[in-house]
Write a protein that binds this DNA or RNA. Structure first.
Lengths: 167, 167
DNA sequence: TATTGTTATACTCTATAACTATA
DNA sequence: TATAGTTATAGAGTATAACAATA
């Protein structure tokens, strides 16, 4: 049913095409910070996953290993706050890292708390991951000058800092 | 078991705290483009959802309505390419928008193809959404000058454009 | 009572394979 | 054969509620 259009088509390509996505006019989407962030995030995370595939490390795992490495003895809840993870969701992430002998839970003075430490293997791995990450970062930011890269991060952090408490 | 640490702790707060997340040292994460993007995306999307909550519109739905509005008669697969959605995942998104009478599928000359059009209600809604989006964009970019905002988007688009075909 | 970690659960987003109807 | 849309399914990521152990 509905065989009377298909002549209404034929009108496309009127505006300049997006530099990000070919095939159709994105309208004002290409002028939005949020849309630019979303597209960049997809590309960067895809690149990250491929870069770390050999070590089976996802971005969140790299974050946890990095933060615990920089803060030995950190509590689970503190890692969650630092990285913006819900503590309920952190349990599974941590279970896998512990199963792989990269992180240890140790009970603390406060028996409710688990203090987290990288194992020897975890410390060794994070050093290698750090090198991979340097290459990853270089490639992701290949289109930016060093100054631009720093300014980009600062601008993004200014956006992140805002709390929008009223909404 | 394991009651002999908790004195190893007490060492935190050694480096400058992150401007994004309080509570622990993020290590080098705060110097990474990918991490800055991730944090900004979370904040921006949360703000978006709250801004559009009254209309029950998610970012992806706003994208579809905008692209179809700017390209009447676009095929489903073309919308998918433009927005980076898998066509399998687009079916459900479109079903809901059609159920809400905002978009119509019309069969095209090629009977395999669905051409997409905003309904009258869809056109009316997208105009109102556009106004909400302007306020949303203004608030998200409140910490940036107009020039910075434009440069931020251009830098993010440069990152998105890269294909990393070798990885 | 409040906090930490945990379990269970649900919803969204993303990804792949296989089916159908059309070309 | 190939393409457009669809279905089914699985995996992450994210969110909330409720529980046990401990403070």
């Amino acid at each position: 049913m509905d065989n009377k259009k298909a002549k209404l088509r034929r009108r496309r390509h009127r505006r300049a095409r997006s530099t990000v996505s070919p095939g159709a006019d994105l309208g004002h989407l290409r002028d939005l910070v949020g849309y630019a962030i979303r597209r960049a995030q997809i590309v960067v995370f895809r690149h990250f996953r491929k870069s770390f595939a050999a070590h089976k490390i996802r971005p969140i795992q790299y974050g946890v290993l990095t933060v615990v490495g920089a803060n030995p003895g950190l509590k689970q809840s503190e890692v969650c706050t630092a990285l913006g993870i819900k503590r309920a969701n952190f349990v599974g992430i941590l279970n896998e890292l512990e199963r792989r002998r990269l992180i240890e839970r140790r009970s603390a003075k406060d028996q409710r708390v688990n203090a987290l430490y990288l194992t020897r293997a975890g410390k060794s791995l994070i050093e290698r991951l750090r090198q991979i990450n340097k290459a990853h970062e270089r490639e992701v930011a290949a289109g930016l000058t060093s100054n631009e890269r720093v300014r980009l991060i600062k601008m993004l952090n200014r956006i992140s800092k805002a709390t929008y408490a009223d909404l």
